[in-house]
Computed example of a mutant assay.
Amino acid sequence: MLCTIASVFQRRREAMGSRTYRTTDASASMYFRIAFLAVVAVFLGAACSRPDGQGAQGNDDVLIAAAADLRFALNDIVTLYLEETGIEVTVNYGSTGLMTQQIENGAPIDLFLAADLSFAQRLYEGGHSSGEPVPYALGYLALAVPEGGVLPNLADIRELSDPRYEVIAIANPSHAPYGTAAFRFLEGAGLLEELRPRLVYGENVLDTLRLVQTGSADLGLVAAAFLPNARDFHGVLLEPERYEPLLQTAVLTNGGANIEGGRQFLEFIMSPVGAEVLSRYLFGIPE
């Protein structure tokens, strides 16, 4: 079912920002409210800025919400799509779970690229999509340490409990699929309860990486898609046999002004051109 994972990493790209988050149950609700208002402001700003009232996206431009693990791969795909079609694509990246709530509350987007199946299915079953979920990629986990840090020996997975990994970062499993996958990986390795006191949480998997990059965490379970873009950290792919890879899934939403444009962009993602980019960023391609 899985395609061959690319073995050659791309060169480093521009450095990511250093802002980090540590989530508590109390702060998650506030984060959602702020994030929702920010997303709506971005999308409504794009939709309402044209004097003819048709919105900045006009008849062509596409508004997308995408899981944070796509931050680098999708940027490349958006650039290629613009070069080929002349159509602008605006992307907001974040936690799949929080973006699902934003869509349910009316965020006006055309296409949602989720990090797993469950949230996309939730939108479909709740009547917030114009069609069934469509798998577009398989997401994998990686271990990451700050630059100069020592990675655990994967031949002995219990090295994750080494005292040098005093703080371990994962995405918040309450709304981030990569956090759920990290939980399940640790549980399957028999380490979850032992390591739970050391865990800190990023709002999404990109924020989790930033905890590692800034040295706020000694070890992180992040998206393998970040490895080709490694800067201020280094990492190693976790063998997919140790956990269930994420079936990343797309839905066309009902709230957008250009659903057909979203459909065409999704077709581009799933074309040989898009699949080649995803493979370079260590995504698998569903059959």
Score class of each variant (00 low, 15 high):
2 L>G: 15
6 A>D: 11
9 F>H: 10
14 E>F: 13
25 D>Q: 11
28 A>F: 13
29 S>K: 14
39 V>S: 11
42 V>L: 12
48 C>G: 14
49 S>K: 15
52 D>W: 13
52 D>E: 14
52 D>F: 09
54 Q>T: 09
74 L>I: 09
74 L>N: 00
75 N>S: 14
82 L>G: 14
86 G>V: 12
100 T>H: 08
105 N>G: 08
109 I>S: 03
110 D>R: 02
111 L>P: 09
113 L>P: 00
114 A>R: 00
115 A>N: 13
125 E>G: 07
125 E>M: 12
127 G>A: 04
134 V>T: 12
142 A>V: 05
145 V>C: 07
146 P>E: 03
148 G>Q: 07
150 V>G: 06
150 V>D: 10
152 P>W: 01
154 L>D: 02
155 A>C: 08
157 I>F: 12
160 L>A: 01
163 P>I: 05
168 I>C: 08
170 I>E: 06
171 A>W: 03
173 P>N: 07
185 F>I: 06
190 G>H: 08
190 G>F: 14
208 T>P: 11
212 V>H: 08
215 G>Q: 04
221 L>N: 00
234 H>V: 06
237 L>N: 05
253 T>P: 02
258 N>A: 07
261 G>V: 00
262 G>A: 05
269 I>N: 01
270 M>E: 07
271 S>D: 11
274 G>C: 06
275 A>G: 10
